[in-house]
Lab assay of single mutants.
Amino acid sequence: MSRESDVEAQQSHGSSACSQPHGSVTQSQGSSSQSQGISSSSTSTMPNSSQSSHSSSGTLSSLETVSTQELYSIPEDQEPEDQEPEEPTPAPWARLWALQDGFANLECVNDNYWFGRDKSCEYCFDEPLLKRTDKYRTYSKKHFRIFREVGPKNSYIAYIEDHSGNGTFVNTELVGKGKRRPLNNNSEIALSLSRNKVFVFFDLTVDDQSVYPKALRDEYIMSKTLGSGACGEVKLAFERKTCKKVAIKIISKRKFAIGSAREADPALNVETEIEILKKLNHPCIIKIKNFFDAEDYYIVLELMEGGELFDKVVGNKRLKEATCKLYFYQMLLAVQYLHENGIIHRDLKPENVLLSSQEEDCLIKITDFGHSKILGETSLMRTLCGTPTYLAPEVLVSVGTAGYNRAVDCWSLGVILFICLSGYPPFSEHRTQVSLKDQITSGKYNFIPEVWAEVSEKALDLVKKLLVVDPKARFTTEEALRHPWLQDEDMKRKFQDLLSEENESTALPQVL
């Protein structure tokens, strides 16, 4: 008996699950189920560990084997000379395990699969056993689809999209007709009724959600790893209520002995410091949205989908001078704002400069500016000194954290500008005749005249004003913003236009 009217009423009120309206889709043409990776026989039982391990490696599972009696060998002398080797079968990115008779397991190899009674669906509900069930008529011709799209860092995100009359449910929550939600590992998919569980979705590319604290899981769906560094790992996640993407940084307390840091400095109150950081608001710094204190720290951040500045300059790639100017102007505005709010970044580098898009002209935002507030000064500097390429001379020669101030950030900005303009770092371990530390503390950077011949004198002058060993003589952010190279009204107008595109209400910060 159909429950279409009941569920449609529920759909009209929406769902609290991570779902959002989605535009129309072009329906895929039908194809045989076997060619799409559906096993030839149905099963109602969950797999054992041996079955799972075989399939996850990209080899055929026991459900897909063919009797050897149906095959015969071709003698080598009868092999056609022009026969080309077969292409290897792509490894599946996800697996659906059937929970009921009449449904088959599915190895997801393609990027898009339609499910329903219509014969054009890649996964067609046409098993005779299924057709005899009382629920068969409640399934729509095109009930739902599972697909994946390219996300940040060229990774993939799996989604389920509801197109049914009676509802598609993920972990008992209604997706909603015309809406989608991301699928995470071990999600249970039910059709027409929330208790009519048909599939379990296994994402073969992500970790299980159960490793994360419950308070975090209640608000966010964790997904793929976006990156990792000395101070922690960053994962893509989704807000459950809105389906908006965020980035979540995970900082290990054990790695940084944060408990010991608190004992050594009783004034170090991470929760208080995070609340201060959350109040920071500038178009060129990453917004801190939320914070969870569990076995590790979880910092929920605004997501930038254009990648890191590092990706644009790695491998001796240089940027156009006009692009360097647009990016560097924004970096200076961001660091100036942090300094005005009493925050020294201490870890400025291309990896911590994020881009809003893949376009050459785009907004940038500074991230990882609050680590000293979370990890403690000593722990952070011990970590950073392991990779000193961007560290100021006074940091390398000081004991502990004494003896330096916000000028350290201006040195790091000078190193970043040098790399963007030239395509190579000013200080490098590859210069074996002088140690990296000695290069930095003496201010002897690697200047290649033929490379810098293409760079304007004004740009080079600003680099020199920032890479000054004496912090008292080094340019401040205010002085850098007043430098002739940055007195470019076309560049500032472009920045204002980019801000307006992102948010019509965002105004250009005042600069002296």
Rank of each mutant, 00 (worst) to 15 (best):
G178N: 05
S19R: 05
K235F: 12
E122R: 14
R132L: 14
R262E: 02
E149G: 05
D126V: 09
L129I: 11
A264S: 05
I157V: 04
V7Y: 09
Y136S: 03
C108G: 03
E87A: 10
R181E: 02
S39A: 10
K244D: 09
F147G: 00
S56V: 02
H163N: 13
Y139V: 01
N196S: 13
F238M: 05
W97R: 08
D218V: 05
T59R: 07
N184E: 04
K253T: 02
S40D: 10
R217G: 09
G167V: 08
L183Q: 00
R95L: 05
A237K: 00
L183A: 03
V66I: 14
S164E: 00
N154A: 14
R3E: 15
L96F: 12
Y113I: 10
Q83F: 02
H22K: 10
Y159T: 09
H54M: 10
I221V: 08
T89D: 01
L226V: 02
Q20I: 04
S210K: 01
K177M: 07
G37F: 15
L71S: 04
D207A: 02
N184V: 08
E64L: 01
T65Y: 03
L236W: 06
I250D: 00
Q11D: 05
E173M: 08
R148K: 14
N269H: 09
A98L: 03
T138H: 03
F169A: 01
S164D: 01
T272F: 09
L60P: 07
W97C: 08
D134K: 07
K214F: 08
K179F: 06
S61N: 09
C108W: 02
D82Y: 08
N185A: 11
H143W: 01
R181K: 04
L174N: 07
K249E: 11
Q11N: 03
G102V: 14
V25S: 10
A190N: 15
F125S: 05
F201G: 02
S223W: 12
L216Y: 04
N166F: 06
G23L: 07
L268E: 12
W97T: 02
E87I: 09
N154S: 10
R240A: 04
F256A: 04
S61C: 06
P85H: 09
E86G: 11
S40G: 13
D162R: 02
G165P: 00
V198F: 09
G23A: 06
G58M: 03
S42L: 10
Q209H: 11
L106V: 08
A190D: 11
C121W: 02
D118G: 13
S155H: 15
E81W: 14
Y220E: 02
T138C: 06
S5V: 15
A257H: 01
E263A: 04
S155Y: 15
R195Y: 11
K141Q: 05
S164G: 13
V175N: 01
K255V: 05
S192M: 02
N48K: 10
E173I: 15
S32P: 06
S61V: 03
G23W: 05
R95M: 01
I251Q: 08
S56E: 08
Q10L: 08
D126L: 11
A215K: 06
S187R: 06
S31P: 08
S252C: 04
K177T: 07
E76R: 10
V170G: 00
T225A: 08
E219D: 10
V7C: 13
E4V: 08
I248P: 00
S140L: 01
G178D: 06
K214L: 06
R262K: 05
H54S: 12
L191M: 13
G116H: 01
E233K: 13
N171C: 11
S49H: 11
G176H: 05
A237M: 04
E79W: 15
Y212I: 02
S2M: 07
V246S: 06
D203T: 02
Y212D: 04
Y156I: 05
G227M: 00
A257G: 07
G30T: 05
S228M: 15
M222P: 04
D265G: 05
S15H: 05
V198P: 01
V246T: 01
S42K: 07
M46T: 12
Q29V: 06
Y123D: 03
S53W: 02
R180L: 07
S67V: 08
G178S: 15
N112C: 09
S49Y: 12
T168P: 03
V66R: 04
E86M: 10
T133L: 14
A267R: 11
L174I: 08
D77M: 10
E149Y: 00
V150F: 01
G37C: 01
N184H: 14
V150K: 00
L183Y: 05
N48G: 12
T138D: 03
G102S: 09
V150T: 07
S42V: 09
Q34S: 11
S252P: 12
R3Q: 12
G14M: 06
E64S: 12
S223K: 13
C18R: 05
T26R: 14
L236R: 05
F199V: 02
S35K: 12
C243A: 02
D111R: 15
E173V: 10
I38R: 10
L191P: 03
S41A: 10
Y139P: 00
P128G: 09
L129G: 09
V66S: 07
S33E: 12
R217L: 08
N154W: 14
V246Q: 04
D77C: 03
V234S: 00
N166S: 02
V270W: 11
P128T: 12
S28P: 09
S31Q: 08
P21I: 10
H13R: 09
D134I: 09
V246A: 03
F144M: 13
N166R: 03
D218Q: 01
D6F: 00
A104W: 13
S39V: 14
K224W: 02
E161F: 03
E239Y: 07
L174S: 06
I251L: 05
S16M: 09
Y156R: 04
K177R: 12
K142W: 13
T168C: 00
M222S: 04
G37N: 04
T59H: 09
E173L: 14
D218E: 06
T272C: 10
R240I: 07
L106G: 15
R117K: 02
S140K: 02
K224R: 03
Q100H: 08
D101L: 15
E8A: 12
D77H: 08
S16E: 06
A215Q: 02
K177G: 12
Y136L: 06
V109M: 10
Q83R: 11
E188H: 06
E271P: 08
D82G: 10
L106D: 00
S55A: 06
G227S: 15
F125C: 02
E219V: 12
P85Y: 15
F144L: 05
E70K: 07
S50L: 06
F201T: 00
N185E: 04
N110M: 12
K131P: 13
I250F: 05
S35Q: 14
V234D: 00
F144Q: 00
D134E: 07
D265V: 02
V7L: 07
L129P: 06
S28D: 13
H13I: 09
R262D: 14
I189G: 01
S61Q: 03
F144W: 01
I221K: 02
K153L: 06
A237I: 01
Q10E: 09
S140T: 07
I146L: 04
L216E: 03
G165Y: 11
G167Q: 01
C231D: 07
K249M: 01
S41H: 10
E107C: 15
N269D: 08
V66Y: 13
S57I: 04
S53E: 08
N48W: 11
T43E: 07
I157P: 14
S31R: 13
S52A: 08
T172E: 02
Y136A: 05
L174F: 12
R181C: 04
T138M: 05
R262P: 14
T45P: 09
N269Q: 04
S35T: 11
A261C: 03
R145P: 04
F199A: 05
V211C: 11
Q29W: 09
L216S: 04
E79L: 09
S49P: 09
D208G: 02
Y220S: 01
E8L: 11
G178H: 11
S33Q: 10
R240W: 06
Q209T: 12
T45A: 11
E107F: 15
C231N: 15
L191A: 00
R117L: 00
W93Q: 03
P85N: 13
E161P: 05
D111G: 11
G151C: 11
A9I: 06
S49M: 07
Y123W: 06
E8R: 11
S53N: 06
M46A: 05
P182N: 09
S28N: 08
C18F: 12
K197V: 02
S28W: 07
G151T: 15
Y212V: 04
S49C: 11
K153E: 03
R254F: 04
N166W: 15
F256G: 09
E84A: 04
L96Q: 00
T133M: 08
